[in-house]
Structure formats: C-alpha cells, structure tokens
Design a protein around this nucleic acid. Structure first.
Lengths: 141, 141
DNA sequence: TTGCATGCAAATCGTTTGCAACCCA
DNA sequence: TGGGTTGCAAACGATTTGCATGCAA
C-alpha cells in the first residue's frame, strides 16, 4: 500500500472525522514508523514538520484515532503508551534485553490457534483475537 | 499451597533478602490477590494493616521483588502497572468489555506452541517464554 | 456559520528519588 | 554494629484537562 496524504485523508473521512493537518501528521507518523512508536516518538516526528503543534493536541488526536479504531494501543511492560496502525492480526516478539518489540506475522500459527480454540471452547467468552507474545533475548552467535 | 507469613519469609530468604514487615505485607497482598493487582490495589491492602507505610516504600519493595523475580510485571493496555506472583507459564484472557485480565493455564496449548517453535526457528532469538493473549467479550447468553 | 479541533498552560496522577532515621542479620 | 530498608516529602514525567481561538465542512 502506497501512503500519501490523500490515502490518509480517506482513512479519516471513512470514519467521518474532520481532516486536519495535525491529524494527517500524527497518523502519518504512526503509519511510517517501523515499530510501535511511543507518544514521544510521534511528538518528535510531528514537531519536525509543525513545531507549533501542541502536545495536548497530539494526545487528543491519538485518543480520537484509538476510539475510532484507526490505530490501537500496544500492551507494554513499562508505563509509556505505544501505538500501532490498526492492521490484520499479528503477534509480537519482545527482546527483553533491548526493550524492543517487533511484529510477527505467521498465518500457519494463526490457523493452528484458531482451530485449537474452535474445538476447546472457553466458557462465557466470545474470542475476538488470539495473539502470541514471545519473549526472548538476542542470540549472540 | 497454604500461605502464611513463614512461607512468605522463606521466599524472601531464598533470595537473600532481608525479611521486613513491609515486604511480608506487600508480597502477601500480591499472593492473596486473585487477579493482577495494580500498585494502588496493593497500597490499599497494605495500608489496612500498616497505615504508616510510605508509598515510596511500597514502590521500592515492588521493584526489589521484580528484580529478584519473585513477582513480575504484567503487560497492560493502560498506563498503570500490574503485578503478579512469579509462577509457572500461563496465558492471559482479557475481557475488553470489563478491563478484566484472567490467568489461563493450558499444558496442552503449551506443548503445541513449544513444538511449533522448536521446528520453526526464529532467527537470532533465544525464546524464553511463549504466551498467548486472548481478547474477547463476555458471552451474554 | 457552527460545532468540532487546536494551542496553550495549568493541573493531575502514578511513580521515582534523596536523605535522615531505623532496624534486620 | 553496619548496611540495607523505611518514611517522608519533594520532584518528575507522561498524560489530561479547560478554555479561548481557529478552522473544516
């Protein structure tokens, strides 16, 4: 998918959100980011192109995007929020030695898990997503 | 496992940590808690038995316990820390409609995943744990 | 035009820190 | 006794809030 401002504007329009330069910038920051930017990462990126943008505005935009399911919050072990573009199901690999979180796509794994939980029903739960979180350290050699 | 102060003291001693009333209380709060208490939950519990304990002390005790792998931090989607007693590998079920996080034990699932990743090596990664995170909503009927 | 969005600054709140007094081993 | 631990209060830092102004539709 090629990303330009028109594409991003369409994402906003599809949710009946007003298209503003601030929202375009914030959303572009997240889409262009390789790995789960923190609010601080996003602020740094956005300020390069619009130094006058308010921090509060950025947080409000992030909140709006999350509420509209355009982006989502990522679970973390420390206390800063990370965000990612809302995309198809994927898993996470966490390098604990580096506090680095990578996406991991594996259709094969997805179907194994889906089949497993299709058979093994969990009482009173409608499953919406099944994600695997792998923790490890970098192999040195 | 029956838990009394002697058991908890032994956990601390096994890590060569000094046994103090504050540490006993904090650790007891976590062990007795059914589901992943926040620091605030722990503070409330502990203050019932020792109103004079300092908030800073509680955070320092939590930090010490995490560093000694007696407890661990739990990944969350909001910005408060949650803790759990360090125990054998388990998975999490998250009820998004209630912000409720439950433990899920499944040896069968564990071996499926371990076998899968034993075959499918991930480059440059020494896996330490594989956890499944299931998100869903409560089934209404 | 009009209501939603922005910029700004103050406020909030969970967590951390520094240090003197304390107390477990 | 001595070094790790505690209590306290101030500091910190990420995020939120309120409000006047601005701007997209």
């Amino acid at each position: 998918m090629l990303i330009d401002n028109k594409n991003i504007a369409n994402i906003l329009k599809s949710k009946s959100l007003k298209v503003t330069p601030q929202r375009l910038l914030v959303l572009k920051a997240i889409i262009n980011s390789k790995n789960h930017p923190t609010a601080e990462n996003i602020i740094t990126y956005v300020k390069k192109f619009n130094p006058n943008i308010g921090i509060g505005t950025i947080y409000k935009v992030l909140d709006t995007l999350v509420k509209n399911k355009i982006i989502q919050k990522v679970e973390t072990y420390n206390d800063v929020m990370r965000y990612e573009f809302h995309t198809k199901n994927h898993h996470h690999i966490y390098f604990s030695d580096k506090d680095l979180l990578l996406d991991y796509y594996d259709n094969n794994l997805d179907s194994i898990l889906n089949n497993y939980f299709k058979k093994k029903k969990i009482p009173k739960l409608n499953i919406e997503s099944i994600k695997v979180h792998i923790t490890g350290k970098q192999k040195l050699k």
